[in-house]
Nucleic acid binder design. Structure first.
Length: 674
RNA sequence: GCGCCCGUAGCUCAGCUGGAUAGAGCACCGGCCUUCGAAGCCGGGUGUCGCAGGUUCGAAUCCUGCCGGGCGCACCA
């Protein structure tokens, strides 16, 4: 935990600059803090002297020197130096730094106030989850963990689109193509892997439509049936959605992904959330009734391309749009169709309003499933149960949805502004990410290699397609990973019990997938490659786990051999010579581990600001790497000098605690052996 | 046409609010298991940071314009 110290240091430097140069709060430069290339150079550094050089008309080195002279004392700082380069290098007081953190009495940052809602997963409940969905869930769940670590109360919602085209299509498959009754569908659900069955069926429905476009009218009719209810098709849809959602929850549970609330689109419709939102929008003038043009008869929302201002208009091509008067084309988004039905955007606006507590209406709630940690609640239309926590009404909202939804998400923010809630718009985040595609090798393995010479074959990756049934199912991937991990674990631990091996293999598999899905930046298309994702070596989740397992083993041995536990090591530190930690022999490796381990809060802060989890993944990996290198270079248990051994052990205590925490933030647990 | 994203080593990618010699993993070659576990460690090299300007003491990072690729701009969800 180093953030609070950084704040103190910044404040102190501001103080120093104020007295030294008479700078005012307006003229004070921001203090950029960074880490010098080596610990021998310092622990923290700032290039602030460069910043001031011009203003003060002095050489950076000279300014740095003056700051050093005027620095005075700051708790936690042992030494401050002006480097020849002009950098200002700060050396920390190492022993108190480590001791405070081991005793967990180092300061932490106070959390911001207000609840956050994170919506993620939101898989259409009509077929098995695939690798693309996993990216959403892995990002979403990591976001949840990171926010909670920061002390922010988080409500996790999984949106279930039970009334959409995709569910309707599967119902068409069962009812129209196969002529199945509801009872027969139920029987199939009992006797098959239902989500897989529907995966194949959905692909067949897609082909069936493709063969004869007029068959699409079945979809329209089915959507109508589902929306209006009171018929066997609607019952079938409800049954299918419910069953598939349960399979999704089971799949996600395997990956340590969990939710607080399932919000069902059907409830939003039946509870007429939209009607309520519509009143709000009309009252604020955010939507209006279009009387002319091609959108006549629709309620529309004007779209503002938030370009800065009147760019020199190239009025050439809009010459025929004379009736608009304005040369800039005024674009409008339909919210209510001319037939009176509401569009997807409309529904989403209502939902978003509810999330932010701006709707003035609430769902009813029912227990959807029982879990060890308590009931999982879902929305419902009527009746419902009492005893549920309050839902909705958040200060912050994160919608985890892929980048293709950017336009719609932008409209949501605009609707909030138009309805007079600019601050709510500011607190609405579209957490977007790019798609998952397949590498050519993996597509080939799955028997979906694009035809040679085709457009698809030229692209660097192959698109997944639920409609064609092309993709890697999440559970298949996990199963493959687990079985591979299992043989590895069994080979390495021949004496281990089967149940333990299985449990460990599962943890390793989860680490492999989740790390893999997190380590890329959000804007990158992942060309998913089975072999690469299955790798347990190099930059991978299992690598990080392995480092912690080794660290844990050290303490197990320490306990067995010397009868000394963690607490005893920590308790003995103050009476030891601190030379080993202070690097009296010129070796700062041990201290480097401590300092790096302390950065977790800084990393988390950065992750929340940038919403870029690759930062967290890379941090965990580099910390594990640093530990592994140290582990090979320096003995801990077998070190003969008592003080050196204990300081090393103490540093490792802190490091493994932080690394375990970092893994937990990624949803990864650490096995006892692997 | 407009908007957003991507372009860094052979491949896949990091590089945060500009700052000290541009980094990892994979692949390739060589070394290290009688000392805390080799899913590991050590060594070996390669870069017009897409191109061109600009801002700056300083640019992979910020700005502008190009080039190449992707996605989005429905009375579909």
């Amino acid at each position: 935990m180093i953030l609070p110290f950084q704040q103190q240091l910044r404040a102190h430097l501001h103080q120093v600059l104020t007295t030294l140069y008479g700078l005012t709060p307006e003229t004070l430069p921001a203090i950029v803090l960074e880490y010098p290339p080596t610990r021998a150079l310092g622990d923290l550094a700032t290039p602030v002297a460069f910043e001031l050089a011009r203003r003060l008309k002095k050489a950076p080195r000279a300014i740095a020197q003056e700051i050093v002279t005027g620095f005075g004392a700051l708790d936690g700082v042992r030494l401050i130096q002006a480097a020849p380069s002009g950098h200002l290098n700060v050396f920390l007081d190492r022993v108190p730094f480590l001791l405070a953190r081991l005793r967990q009495d180092a300061a932490t940052l106070p959390p911001p106030s207000g609840k956050a809602i994170v919506e993620h997963t939101a898989i259409n409940p009509n077929k098995a989850a695939h690798i693309g969905h996993l990216r959403n869930s892995a990002l979403g769940d990591t976001l949840v963990r990171v926010l909670r670590y920061r002390g922010i109360p988080v409500e996790v919602q999984n949106y279930i689109d039970d009334t959409g085209v995709q569910v309707a299509d599967v119902v068409v498959g069962f009812r129209v193509i196969e002529g199945k009754s509801l009872a027969e569908i139920r029987a199939i659900a009992e006797t098959t892997r239902f989500d897989y069955h529907c995966w194949d069926l959905y692909a067949r429905v897609g082909e069936w439509y493709g063969d004869d476009k007029t068959r699409l009218e079945h979809r329209a009719r089915m959507l109508h049936d589902i929306e209006h209810g009171g018929n066997e098709n609607a019952e079938a849809a409800a049954f299918i959605a419910d069953r598939i959602v349960r399979t999704h929850l089971a799949t996600m549970a395997r990956l340590n992904v969990d939710y607080d609330l399932l919000t069902w689109e059907g409830d939003i419709l039946r509870l007429k959330f939209w009607a309520q939102a519509f009143e709000v929008l009309k009252a604020s003038g955010a939507v209006f009734f279009q009387t002319e043009g091609r959108l006549a008869g629709c309620w529309v929302m004007p779209i503002h391309d938030d370009v800065t201002d009147a760019a020199p208009a190239e009025a050439t091509e809009t010459a025929d749009a004379t009736e608009d008067g304005d040369d800039a084309e005024q674009r409008e988004k339909v919210i209510v169709r001319s037939n009176g039905t509401v569009t997807y955007v409309g529904k989403d606006i209502a939902y978003q309003f509810w999330k932010l507590g701006l709707l003035g209406r609430d769902f009813n709630y029912r227990v959807f499933a029982e879990r060890p940690q308590g009931p999982l609640w879902a929305t419902c239309t009527e009746g419902g149960q009492t005893g549920h926590p309050p839902y909705g009404g958040a200060a912050y909202v994160y919608n985890v949805i892929d980048v293709r939804q950017s336009y719609l998400q932008k409209l949501l923010k605009q609707a909030l502004i138009a309805a007079g809630h600019p601050e709510a718009s500011e607190h609405s985040h579209h957490f977007s990410y790019e798609m998952v595609a397949l590498s050519h090798a993996t597509a080939r393995e799955l028997g979906h290699a694009p035809a040679p010479g085709s457009e698809e074959a030229k692209k660097p990756f192959v698109e997944v397609s639920g409609r064609k049934g092309l993709g890697v199912k999440a559970d298949d991937l996990l199963d493959t990973l687990i079985s591979k991990a299992r043989t590895e674990v069994a080979n390495r631990n021949p004496e281990a019990a089967d149940a333990d091996v299985a449990r460990t293999a599962h943890m390793i598999a989860v680490a492999a997938v989740r790390y893999f899905l997190i380590k890329f930046t959000r804007g990158k298309i992942i060309a998913f490659d089975l072999d690469e994702a299955l790798s347990f070596e190099g930059e991978s989740g299992p690598y990080v786990q392995y480092a912690v397992v080794r660290a844990n083993n050290i303490f197990q041995k320490l306990q067995q051999r010397d009868g000394v536990d963690e607490a005893a090591v920590v308790a003995s530190l103050p009476s030891l010579s601190p030379d080993a930690l202070n690097g009296e022999d010129g070796d700062h490796d041990l201290w480097a581990l401590v300092l790096e381990a302390a950065r977790l809060d800084e990393i988390v802060d950065q992750v929340i600001r940038s919403l870029e989890f690759s930062v967290l993944a890379k941090y965990a990996f580099s910390l594990a790497q640093a530990f592994n290198a140290f582990y090979h270079r320096s003995q801990i248990l077998n070190e003969e000098r008592d003080d050196v051994r204990r300081w090393r052990a103490a540093a490792i205590v802190y490091l493994r605690r932080q690394l375990t925490q970092a893994l937990d933030l990624m949803g990864v647990a650490v096995p006892s052996r692997m």
